[in-house]
Design a protein around this nucleic acid. Sequence first.
DNA 1: TATATGTTTGACAGCTCTGTCAAACAGAAT
DNA 2: ATTCTGTTTGACAGAGCTGTCAAACATATA
Lengths: 209, 209
Amino acid sequence: MIESQEFQEPLVNTEQRILDAAKLLFVQKGMDGTKMQDIADSAKISRTSLHYYFRSKQKLFEAVFYDQFDRFLPRVTKIMEQEITFEARLGQFVDKYLDLFLANPYLPNFMMNELNRDPEKMIELFAGEGLFSKRVREQVEGELRLMNPSLEASHFILNLISLCVFPFIARPMVKAFLINGEKDAFSHFIRERRAIIVDTLMCSINDAK
Amino acid sequence: MIESQEFQEPLVNTEQRILDAAKLLFVQKGMDGTKMQDIADSAKISRTSLHYYFRSKQKLFEAVFYDQFDRFLPRVTKIMEQEITFEARLGQFVDKYLDLFLANPYLPNFMMNELNRDPEKMIELFAGEGLFSKRVREQVEGELRLMNPSLEASHFILNLISLCVFPFIARPMVKAFLINGEKDAFSHFIRERRAIIVDTLMCSINDAK
DNA sequence: TATATGTTTGACAGCTCTGTCAAACAGAAT
DNA sequence: ATTCTGTTTGACAGAGCTGTCAAACATATA
């Protein structure tokens, strides 16, 4: 058997084209609102071919889901382990997530939809990961206690996540009302937020009231 | 014709029972994921009766939608017009929204789903209302400029909305990881947030860096 | 009692969606 | 040329969902 790989790619990998099309449609119209025909059309293949690649709609959805989910939990341990100030670590964390969402604008919505459709599945998947892991959580609690004992870690973490994630969830709203529709205005606006989020959170810590 | 009203209500108003059931299902499973049969079962009537009350699924959905939407835009002008400090007004605003969402826990998700399903419809409906109205917006801009000229109103408003709304959108997550599943823990947690949100936002203003 | 109005239901027609199959097609290996 | 593998497609069967209709039912009025 002669090894004759790398000959595929008609124009661009069909499987990836399907995943891209499916992701977009699943996010916009939901799992049930999206028909296999829609995905096939969008990927420029026949619906039967779609079934050839992903046997069923459920399987396709799961493929899209896990593909997205894996991106959602970048290892924060690297950030946590660094011997730098709390503020610097916070900055890195915010950076990482804003960049992630800018590169994958549909990720937050996708995750929130699933969270409400099937909370138990999502909670199980999230359990012990990232900010929800015991280790990270306890470290944040310890550091916060030193700086401002009256500020509960739960609220601080929720503030952090809210400020990072919500603008993407409400993106059409932000685009329409908070920025003036210039080209690339949204990503510019988000990059401005990096410093704003860090400042806001830091001063909520330092504000020993 | 003798006026013989108020004789209906078998046990409780059927129409309202339908709306309640439909709201819950539409939020959890989406418009397309919800079948008329599901709603009928949940409201304890036959599917045909459901059609009798709301001719079509679309009409039922719209009824639910506008019923929800109307709650979503409490008149903030009353708050804006009061001659009180900025902080006091901010507090009233946060109060009003947290109470609203506590009483209608599915509202934020419902609105965000629709925002992504049909952004133009939502933007049109929101335009000029509440925080997005020109009047309110300019007042906030003016007041902020006096206190901290380097803080843009867009970011401030987005921070405010993020901190108020996101915890409800991610509610299952908050319940699972940030509070320890006690009875009424969520609403208690949210009431704690009232002061935290106001403090956080105020100190982001005062922090003239 | 008879009649009118409002409500509920079972049955049906029509449509849409999914998933399968067998056949056609393309290209590489023999 | 033919054989084999992987890909694409049209056609079909089956299931589920919506919306309508006519008939039954309940209740109040005349």
